[in-house]
Computed example of a mutant assay.
Amino acid sequence: MKCELYNDHFENAKSYQIPSAQLIIADIPYNLGRKAYASNPAWYKDGDNANGESELAGKKFFDTDGDFKINNFFDFCTRYLKKEPTKSGACGKSSGAPAMIVFCAFEQMQMVIDEGHKHGLKHAYPLIFIKPSSAQALKANMKILGGCEYAIVLYRDKLPKFNNNGKMIVNWFNWLTDGVEIPKIHPTQKPVRMLKRLIEIFTDYGDVVIDPCAGSGSTLRAAAELGRNAYGFEIKKNFYRKSKAKMIANIQPDIFTVMYEAQQQERRQAFINGQTSLLMG
């Protein structure tokens, strides 16, 4: 399996000759500006306002947030997303169409849907991730605190590839946190465990996953450990270096997960072949 992270902007992807993706996952900038830590105890030393402000007070998460261009992002994604299959899936089954998952702030959801529609991603639906607690502790006496993360699934015409193993999957998930074996590299890092769950649903063993805003590289690690080919871009050198050294160094696919996935894929293909034979016969 390939697992490649490039210290470059996704707009320069052409020079790396990466393949088209079955799934693109991205955590785009939330554009919080200098209020990134405004409702988080980290604004103060040791999380206590009696100690005065910390070095994070009035700081942005990233100095590149203002440079993010949503139109350019979707240009890249729709260029590197696999083409639609020519045939629909078997009766009662989704097709093998590709999909995008974009993590964003609640206020950005409609913008992401609208921009996707401009780029031919005509359909979208939300995903909601329920956290066990809220980081907005400083607003506890002012408002109901946000305890969720949000994402949008986008696709063109045909329903994306969908692996549910016969079980219903709803559009809300419990926020699955990582253990100490996963390094903390990025302030908005998404858990590997949770990313694996999404990758399992929308891809098969051997498929390609691309993360244009790779950050910590947790998406690449999740994909590679599941036996998917993973490619990512990260322009910040410090995140790139830490990811290469700690997150994606010496990744080995989880052999038991890969074997199970391969078996399930064979069964699905056998079912599709059987249905096709019945239709032709």
Rank of each mutant, 00 (worst) to 15 (best):
A124Q: 03
M100L: 15
M109P: 02
P98M: 02
G89W: 11
H119T: 06
F106R: 09
K118Y: 09
E107L: 05
G120I: 10
Y125P: 01
K83L: 11
L121S: 07
S94H: 12
E107S: 14
K122G: 04
K131F: 11
K122E: 09
P126K: 06
V112W: 03
H123A: 11
K83F: 05
M100N: 08
T86W: 00
L127D: 04
K122S: 13
H123W: 13
A105S: 14
F103K: 00
G116I: 09
E84D: 11
I101D: 01
G89R: 10
G96M: 05
G92Q: 10
G92K: 09
C91Y: 15
F106P: 00
A90Y: 11
C91K: 14
A105F: 03
S94A: 14
H117T: 12
C91L: 14
L121P: 04
G92T: 07
S95P: 02
G120W: 09
K118D: 07
A99M: 05
P98E: 05
E115S: 10
I113M: 13
K131M: 10
M109H: 03
Q110C: 04
K118E: 12
P126C: 05
I101P: 04
G120L: 10
T86M: 11
F129T: 07
A99R: 05
I101N: 03
P85S: 07
K87P: 00
H119P: 02
V112T: 06
K83P: 07
I130T: 15
I113S: 12
L121G: 10
L127R: 06
K93N: 09
M100R: 03
E84F: 10
A97W: 00
L127W: 14
E115L: 03
I130C: 14
C104W: 01
G120H: 10
E115D: 05
S95H: 02
M111W: 07
C104L: 00
K122I: 06
P98F: 04
L121E: 06
P126F: 13
G92W: 07
A105G: 15
T86G: 01
K131E: 06
A99C: 13
